[in-house]
């Protein structure tokens, strides 16, 4: 093949590739552009460009209280996830104990069907939380963390496995106690895995919809769901809301990009 022909072929395949990409990304581009439009749809006319949609959303008291609730729930979820899951993952990585592999396999298997089991247990969860008088906003972060335990214990355990345990043993030879070991050796060397866990916990809580909707807590996803359930939908306002909602997620995704593949492989997302 001559180089000119090869060059043309490359150009052609590249053009095909980018057309496919553009087609697949169209819904996202559409939402992005609609957020800046005076019409409830895309408009390429400069006369219809506006930032008012964002102003409208931010001035909406309902949006602000949902944002507050979402932030609160997500923050609490991150805190509880670190508190509950980090020590467990450390123990799974470092210690041998009875029932360890059973627990790990159960977590692995469960994380594969967690979405379906989650919905399948909604009726019973609703009934027994109702009977225990536990349907309140404080329970939501605990519910979220409990759902995160299987996958995130694995994720974090894999990180701990990569931190040399010589560190622990050196500290032991130095004669330090468990607490010193924990706070001086383990925690500082596990900053990276804990950051990953925090990001995953935040993304999980920020985007959880089914439970929040069932129990009637108006977090941001529930707020948006109710908005598009209305009779008249101002799609440009919705688009602005969607961008404000997605912004923290996109930032987190960029930080956590290389871990997301692993999460999806284990069936956490989607």
């Amino acid at each position: 093949m001559t180089s000119v022909k090869l060059y043309l072929l490359k150009l052609f395949i590249t053009a095909v590739g980018f057309s496919i990409t553009a087609t697949l990304l169209y819904p996202v581009v559409y939402i992005f552009l609609t957020a800046f439009s005076k019409l409830p749809t895309i408009s390429l006319d400069a006369a219809y460009f506006t930032l008012d949609n964002f102003v409208t959303v931010i001035n909406d008291g309902d949006f602000r209280s949902s944002l507050f609730l979402s932030s609160l729930v997500s923050g609490a979820t991150v805190f509880l996830a670190l508190l509950f899951i980090t020590p467990a993952a450390y123990a799974f990585s470092r210690f041998r104990f009875r029932g360890k592999s059973t627990a790990l396999y159960s977590y692995l298997i469960f994380s594969q069907v967690s979405g379906g089991f989650g919905v399948a247990s909604l009726v019973a969860l609703f009934v027994f939380l109702g009977k225990l008088n536990l349907v309140n906003i404080y329970v939501l972060p605990f519910l979220y963390v409990s759902g995160m335990v299987p996958f995130n214990t694995w994720l974090l355990k894999n990180y701990f496995d990569n931190i040399p345990r010589e560190l622990d043993e050196a500290a032991f030879v130095d004669g330090s106690g468990w607490w010193t070991l924990m706070f001086r050796v383990v925690l500082p060397s596990s900053r990276a895995p804990m950051l990953v866990l925090a990001i995953f916990a935040f993304m999980g809580a920020w985007s959880e919809f089914i439970l929040a909707n069932l129990f009637g807590f108006q977090t941001l996803p529930v707020f948006m769901y109710r908005y598009i359930g209305a009779r008249t939908i101002y799609w440009n306002i919705f688009a602005a809301t969607a961008i404000l909602y997605a912004a923290p997620m996109i930032i987190m995704y960029m930080v956590a990009q290389r871990f997301v593949g692993e999460a999806v492989r284990m069936g956490v997302k989607g």
Binding site: V28, M203, W206, S207, F209, P221, M224, Y225, I228, F238, A242, Y245, A246, M249, I250, Y253, M254, V260, G261, V264, K269, G270
Partner: peptide, 10 residues
Amino acid sequence: WAIPAILSVM
């Protein structure tokens, strides 16, 4: 992947 599934559907 960067967008939560719930937002994608909306």
